Every structure is written in C-alpha cells, then in structure tokens.
Amino acid sequence: MPRRIVIVGNGAVSEKFAGPIDAADMVIRFNLCRSAGAGGHRTDVIAVCNTGRPALEMLAGGRWKASEPLRWAKEIWCVRTSEMFAAMRGPLSISHPDLDDFCDDYTAGFKTFAEATGKRLRIVPATAHRKLDAALAAFDPSPYVVPSSGLIVIAHVLDNIAEDGDRVSIAGFGHEGWQWHPFAAERRWVESRIAAGHLDRLDR
C-alpha cells in the first residue's frame, strides 16, 4: 500500500495541517521537535544532529529525553556519519576555528539511549550527504559547512526510504537559520523536487 510520509521541520506549521500530519503513515521530526503541538503530535522518527553542541545538549539534559515526541518515536536517526565528520575536523579547524566542537561525535550516546528505551537507531548514510552536496552545486550555493539536517533527511527519504507510489510531504521548512547552511540553494533544490513531482509542501 502506498504510504504518506511527512517530514516536519522546526519552522512554523499552521494548525490546519495538524490533522493531515497526524493521519500520515510516517512522521519525521527533528531534535527538540518544536513543531509538535500546533503541527500535530504523531512522531515516528526523530532525526538528530548527533555531533556538536546540539547533540551534547540533547543527551545531557532532561528536556529532550523526557519529551512526549521522543516517547512516541519508534526510531532515532543520526544525520551525521562519524567517519565523514571526523575527516572534516582538520579542515574546519583552519577554515572555521570557532567550530572547534562541531565534529565531536555523540553517536554512541544516542545508541545507548535507543537501546535503553527500546527504539531503533539508524545512521543516515554518508552517501546521502555526499550526493546532496553534489546536487546542491547546481544551485550556486554560497560557501557552507554542511547542508542542513532537514535537507539531508528529505534527500535520504526521497532516495532511500520512499517506495513507488509513496507521497512525501514537507511542512515547517522556512529554509533559514544557521549561517553555514546553504539555505538559498537548499530552497531551490526543494523547489526543483516539487516541480518534478517528487515532493509537496503541506503549508501551501
């Protein structure tokens, strides 16, 4: 049976889309799941930045571990592969010395937490990240460090998770935020996938 997969970013989501989101077969949210509530409640997967400060804060504090979306989720996806970010550490220490903790890897902590809470842990493959970097080059990105976790997950779902007939929708993506994500190019990449019929937005 074809599925409805909804990827919900941490941007604003109108309450009128809560019903369609909750009715989906799979709902993916990110990190602290700020979209949960007005943007529906269903959460099957939480995709996390498993390196750097965001990962440390999620694992060290009780807010993330005690959150309702995390209790509902069946899977945790680590968006950043250990080997890829280990290789980035040296070059980043020269080009972006202020990002000294950006490549610190906390995948083991998420694995331990997943095992303790009966959730499945998946690692988004490095090939998804590399393929996306290559695709973004066509959209003239300004200098960047990595694509956003949201875009990596969208690309991973389209290329590796969705099956023939599945409908993939996104909501809560404003394509803005951290200065070292290529958001202008990311928006153009998303619009190209929508134009090709591979993706749609719930917030339109």
Rank of each mutant, 00 (worst) to 15 (best):
P69T: 10
P54I: 04
F113H: 15
V146Q: 10
I170V: 14
L136S: 09
G177Y: 07
I123Q: 15
F110M: 07
L151A: 03
G39S: 12
D159L: 10
I76H: 03
P20A: 09
L92F: 08
G19W: 02
N160K: 10
F30C: 04
P20H: 07
S95N: 02
D44M: 03
G177D: 05
Y106L: 13
D133A: 08
V124K: 08
A86Q: 15
M88Q: 12
D44L: 01
L92H: 09
A60D: 11
W64M: 12
W72M: 14
G9V: 04
L121A: 04
W72R: 15
P69W: 11
E15M: 08
F183N: 06
G40D: 02
G174I: 04
P141C: 08
R34S: 06
L121I: 02
G61S: 08
G19Q: 03
A137G: 11
S93A: 15
M58E: 13
D164L: 04
N31V: 09
R187S: 00
S169F: 13
R3D: 00
L32D: 10
D164K: 09
F173C: 01
V145N: 07
K16S: 06
F85I: 10
P143N: 10
F183V: 00
A138E: 14
I154H: 02
A137T: 07
D203R: 07
D101Q: 13
E176R: 12
A86L: 12
T117M: 08
R188L: 11
S82R: 15
M88W: 10
C78V: 03
D25A: 06
M88R: 14
G9L: 02
R29G: 01
R29I: 08
H41G: 13
R42N: 10
V190W: 07
P125M: 13
Y106D: 06
L202E: 05
L151Q: 05
Q179E: 14
G40C: 03
V6R: 06
T117W: 13
I152E: 08
H181C: 06
P91W: 15
H96N: 05
R4E: 13
A135W: 06
A135Q: 15
A114V: 07
L199N: 11
K119G: 01
R71G: 05
N50P: 02
L59Q: 09
R53D: 12
R193Y: 01
L136N: 02
I152Y: 06
H129Q: 08
T127Q: 15
G62D: 14
G172R: 03
E68N: 09
M88Y: 15
I154E: 07
W178P: 04
C33T: 10
H41P: 00
S67H: 08
D98T: 01
S142H: 10
F139L: 13
S82N: 11
P182K: 09
N31I: 07
R188K: 14
V153G: 05
